[in-house]
Amino acid sequence: MKKLLTLALLLSMCTFFGFADASAKQVLKLGMGDPIDSDQGAFAIRFKEILEGLSEGELQVDLFPNGALGTETEMLQNTRTGTLDFAIIGIGNAVPFVRELGTLTMPYLIENSYDAVKATTGELGDFWNTVSIEKGGFRILGWTYSNFRHLTNSSRPVTSLKDIKGLKIRIPQNNIILATLKSWDANPVPMAWSETFTALQQRVVDGQDNPYIVNYTSKFHEVQDYLTEIHYQYSLQPLVTGIVAFDKLSPEQRAMVQRAGIEAQQYCILFQTLEAEKAKKAMQENGVKVSYLTDEEEWKKKAVETVWPKFYDFIGGKQNLDLVLKALGKS
């Protein structure tokens, strides 16, 4: 009888402490719009690995790709209210909440990966984070560098301005991208990301634009025949957390979250560099014809001269554009 009582006591203690361990683990949700094998997914997986390691399992990160938690705009709003812990979003979707961030979507402002890093780190990185906290109610923890949004379509090769005229191109809800494509005489169609593949498949629109990795992991090679490398818009996708959720963490946990964001950002730069070329080759192997512009200076001239002056107020003032131009060493 004594042995049975002792065994029962041990079992109850194991059960109690097992539940105590489970309750001590804090589960945090991270949502994203893209597939898990995309740039966003690479960032998210690395963030999860680092944060869970730093916290020794105290903080657990559950990942929800493919828009499982809603559109990027919905996920950003949910981080602001504290009902979602983290989200990776295209920078354009943050502009309605923090218009200064629209500066980073100006056509041909960022012209290479060096510009992208300079524009989002150091004093500029602090600036974007400060205005996001003060005006948007969210904090930027790190940046996903996805490279340029290259144009795909199912109608014809595009190698010059005359080739894009009239093409119906799916774009995100972004006024600057809308104005840019109109400056080239294209027919931009704002559309939710979740509707894009079907719209391409059914020829509701002719094409869309996204970086190589997104184009490939989204399987656009199944419904698009042509891709053109264009360098007007560098795709930046920050990992954000709402101030409400961030403030609930202990000082030690906040430090771990911030460190995980920075280290995941560093990893993502390398991921994009190595994987974009693989995605390009894979699309070509699946029959997509890749073209290059013969007159991109004309594309740039039209976009800059037409779009920039119209959107100074939209981005919170010309001084925000000048701030980035100065940091990039441009006039």
Score class of each variant (00 low, 15 high):
Asn129Trp: 07
Val189Ser: 00
His221Cys: 05
Arg203His: 15
Val189Thr: 09
Tyr216Asn: 10
Gly90Thr: 05
Thr152Gly: 00
Thr273Asn: 11
Glu111Lys: 11
Cys268Glu: 14
Thr273Trp: 15
Ser146Trp: 12
Asp295Trp: 07
Tyr234Lys: 08
Ala179Tyr: 04
Cys268Thr: 12
Cys14Lys: 04
Lys48Trp: 10
Trp193Met: 10
Gly102Asp: 14
Gly142Asn: 05
Ala279Gly: 08
Lys318Met: 05
Val204His: 11
Val27Lys: 14
Ile230Glu: 15
Gln266Ile: 07
Asn93Val: 12
Pro238Thr: 07
Thr81Ser: 14
Leu274Gln: 14
Asn147Ala: 06
Thr294Ala: 03
Asn153Lys: 13
Leu54Phe: 02
Leu28Met: 09
Tyr292Leu: 09
Gln284Met: 06
Asn147Pro: 04
Lys165His: 03
Leu161Gln: 02
Leu51Gln: 15
Gly31Tyr: 09
Arg99Ile: 04
Glu222Val: 00
Phe311Asn: 12
Cys268Trp: 05
Ala119Ile: 05
Gln265Ile: 08
Leu141Trp: 10
Trp128Asp: 09
Gly329Ile: 05
Ser160His: 06
Ser291Trp: 08
Arg156Tyr: 06
Gly122Thr: 02
Pro107Glu: 06
Gln40Met: 13
Asp185Trp: 04
Arg170Trp: 15
Ile89Ala: 13
Ala279Phe: 11
Glu195Lys: 08
Arg80Lys: 12
Ile45Gly: 07
Leu325Asp: 07
Tyr114Phe: 09
Gln224Leu: 02
Ala282Ile: 02
